[in-house]
Simulated assay, not measured.
Amino acid sequence: MALSERDLDELRAAAEHLDRLLLPGQVDEVVARRPVHTAYVPADRFDAGTVAAWGAAARDAVRDHGPPAGFPASTVDMVLAKLAAEPIEDLRVDFEDGYGYRDTEDQDALAAGAALRAGAPPFSGLRCKSLEPSTVDRAARTVDAFLTGLGPPPPGFVVTFPKATSAAHADVAVLLCRQLEHAHGLADGTLRFELQVETPQAVLGADGRSPLPEMIVRSHGRLAGFHYGTYDYSTALGIAPGQQSLEHPVADHAKAVMQVAVAGTGVHVSDGSSNVLPVGSPQEVHAAWDLHARLVRRSLERGLHQGWDLHPAQLVTRFAATFQFYLDGLPPARRRLDDYLARRASGVLDEPATARAIARFLLRGLHCGALRRDDLGHPIEDLEAL
């Protein structure tokens, strides 16, 4: 060999520097259960019966208007069973745009916390007002009152902070979480939060860089996810109301930047909402369902596995489109993984990275309830190992 040991030592030293270019704490993604949606409920309309009421309203919509088009009866049956057993996977009690400004916010926050304590879904939390100077006191008091009513937060609990514009928002969020933990006797690190990306400055800062990676670093492991704010962001970019949508090019650009920023960090990206609600005549309901189902499927195809729902009847197409996405993808995914593991030649040349993606796809399908263990074709442990 022509290379000397000194050459190799120099090369190793240079290679070690590469690790320091990664985000602190950057890790391989663990495919655990994540909610497929977040149901957004204004605080003044939330009580202990809200989750069950949303499920009943969604089932009533199917009864009154018939199931959404394009789904087999077996998928509709799965959706109806889901709506009866667990209609909301992730609940966000809203004290921001959906609630407004009220003199009763302290009392409403206390009552909402107590109502959530009576029966929280698998994932839950609240959205307070922004941490910007004009509303930071109100935000802190609301979360404080909510936690007073709630008591120790259940697993999967997060606080959503809207309108994050810079990495400094992460600093303030971390400080507030630490203050609240101390005030409520909670262990350090109990409180986690989400930041809503709904301003252009959150995607591209004044220095020409995206502040999102720095937000992750300065959150010190407390950041659970970035949520895209469809309408604030679109309005800020001058998009006319009739063109504001999850599939507008400005929305796709923002979400693509968010996905790049969180890759390998354990932080998740959630899509926003569609404000076209399935209400009115049967024709209007089915038109809204068709749109929502298409948008949910489109987001899944683009690697966004979660989105916001604003109305109980949107749960119908949220679960239908999600279940069908995994059911449609199951046969080719199993075939490709079988061929890869058996080293069989096929029409698709898969490699370790794509085998990993297939395993993640199957596990996500299992965790969301679309697939059963028997559908996977391989033990869960083997898929997790991939």
Rank of each mutant, 00 (worst) to 15 (best):
L3D: 01
E10S: 07
L11H: 01
R12S: 00
L18H: 10
L22R: 15
G25S: 06
Q26A: 15
V27C: 14
V30E: 15
V30Q: 15
R34Y: 12
T38N: 13
A43C: 07
F46P: 00
T50W: 11
W54P: 00
G55N: 06
A56W: 10
A58T: 05
A58E: 08
V62L: 01
D64T: 07
T75L: 15
V76W: 08
L80P: 02
A81C: 08
A81D: 15
A81P: 04
K82L: 06
A84N: 03
A85D: 12
P87C: 07
D90C: 12
D94E: 14
E96G: 00
A112Q: 06
G113I: 02
A114T: 09
L116M: 08
L116I: 07
V136N: 05
A140W: 06
A140N: 01
V143I: 15
T148I: 07
T148V: 10
G151H: 12
T160C: 02
A168S: 14
H169M: 09
A170F: 04
V174H: 01
R178C: 10
H182F: 00
G185Y: 06
G185W: 06
L186E: 00
L191H: 06
R192K: 15
R192Q: 13
F193K: 08
E194H: 12
L195G: 13
L195D: 14
Q196R: 06
T199F: 10
P200E: 14
Q201W: 01
V203A: 13
V203K: 13
D207T: 11
G208M: 03
R209Q: 15
S210W: 04
I216W: 12
R218Q: 13
S219V: 06
Y231W: 14
T235L: 15
S245D: 10
S245G: 03
H248I: 11
P249Q: 06
A251T: 14
G266Y: 05
S273Q: 12
L277I: 12
P282D: 11
V285H: 10
R297K: 07
L304A: 09
H305T: 02
Q306T: 04
H311V: 05
A313Q: 05
L315G: 03
V316G: 13
T317L: 12
A320P: 01
F323W: 08
F325W: 13
F325Y: 15
F325S: 06
L330N: 05
L330T: 05
L330M: 03
P331I: 10
P332Q: 11
R334L: 08
R336H: 12
D339W: 04
Y340I: 01
R343F: 11
S346E: 07
D350V: 09
E351R: 12
A353Y: 08
A355Q: 07
R356D: 14
F361N: 01
L363A: 04
R364Y: 00
H378D: 01
A385M: 10
L386V: 11
